[in-house]
């Protein structure tokens, strides 16, 4: 995959030939892509293929790697796989940890149906609520780039769909760029404009699928058709 548009001001994130090894084990192999302002990518790969490692490199949590990254986003929001809430702080104080403006916090809590839990401790929240707070924390910083690292993995379908709809809604309002890491085709289709299909470890991009014009509606025949096409690609690529 070659990135040619190196100096595009419209570019939020560029990866050139990114590779990462831990000791002798190569985890990420020669990944290149460019994310433009307002775009949304899904990195769709099998469990344990190195998607999270890739995301951690993008977020600056892993600083040693081969290749080059140009991150033009001043503010990055990260929805972690697990909520990562400070256990001894209330919901509102968890958000204050990253953003002081109380009015903004209350607005985001209202919009994500968390207002009545503002003074609750994380231990009193359900898994879905905790993930909503995780999302609220990522959105409160008004990110130019939102990273989602399999945030729905532990949620049931109802909660998953509800949070995905919240994200779609927020993206319309805030027009941030987004990268979602997932092994779920449906999540990828709902959240992304483009899907990069990743191989197993060491992970690399094996296919690129444009899904911008696919309706974000799981009952739509076009959506279901695309889902089925991607699944058949996966059957071939992931040696299922």
């Amino acid at each position: 995959m070659e990135v040619t548009n190196k100096n595009d001001k419209n570019s939020i994130l560029c990866l050139w030939n990114l590779s990462k090894s831990f000791g002798k084990m190569k985890i990420v192999n020669d990944i290149s892509f460019e994310l433009k302002k307002g775009e949304s990518f899904a990195l769709l790969g099998p469990s344990g293929c190195g998607k999270t490692t890739l995301m951690r490199i993008i977020a600056g949590l892993i600083e040693e790697y081969d290749g080059k990254i140009e991150n033009n986003a001043q503010k990055v929001g990260y929805v972690f796989q697990e909520p990562r809430l400070i256990p001894w702080k209330t919901v509102i104080d968890n958000l204050k940890f990253v953003e002081e403006n109380e009015e903004k916090i209350l607005n985001i809590l209202k919009s994500l149906k968390l207002y009545e839990f503002a003074n609750s401790m994380p231990s009193k929240l359900s898994g879905g609520m905790k993930q909503r707070v995780n999302l609220a924390r990522a959105l409160i910083v008004e990110p130019e780039l939102l990273l989602l690292d399999e945030p729905f993995a532990s949620l049931d379908v109802h909660l998953k769909i509800s949070i995905i709809l919240d994200i779609i809604e927020k993206r319309k309002d805030m027009s941030f760029s987004m990268i979602v890491v997932t092994h779920d085709v449906r999540e990828a289709l709902l959240l992304a404009d483009r899907i990069y299909l990743l191989s197993d470890k060491p992970t690399s991009i094996v296919d690129e699928i444009n899904v911008l014009n696919v309706p974000k509606d799981i009952s739509n025949p076009e959506f279901l058709e695309m889902e089925s096409q991607i699944l058949s690609k996966i059957m071939r690529r992931w040696s299922v």
Binding site: A59, L61, Y78, F97
Partner: peptide
């Protein structure tokens, strides 16, 4: 350490 990573992503001041 996951909380420390979270703080790093959001560029929270070390004193905080």
């Amino acid at each position: 350490k996951r909380l420390i990573e979270m703080a790093k992503v959001y560029r929270v001041k070390p004193s905080r």
